[in-house]
Amino acid sequence: MGFMKFPVLLVLGLIVLSLASGMFLLAKDDGKGNRLVTSLTFRIILSLILFAMLIFGAIFNVIEPNTLTPSAVPAVK
């Protein structure tokens, strides 16, 4: 995946953060206000950005999936 690994992991980290803030708001806000639904909306927008990064990264050959053939050695007799 090369250096593009880092922006991908950064966005993944931001997604986890927005989800985690949703977890606290679920417990704290008692269903009042729009803070939970807003944090979950951020979550889905960031996820779409991440998916688009992967697709466009692959189209422009910046990132590629790991397609290494699984390594093994012959069994030791």
């Binding site: 790991n66 390594s71 093994a72 050695v73 012959p74």
Partner: peptide, 20 residues
């Protein structure tokens, strides 16, 4: 004889070769 990489079938290739 094992070369470390991921994915790996393991040093003894117990489950046989596989594709991803």
């Amino acid at each position: 004889q094992f070369v470390s990489q991921w994915p790996t079938a393991g040093p003894l290739n117990l489950g046989g070769s596989f594709a991803l």
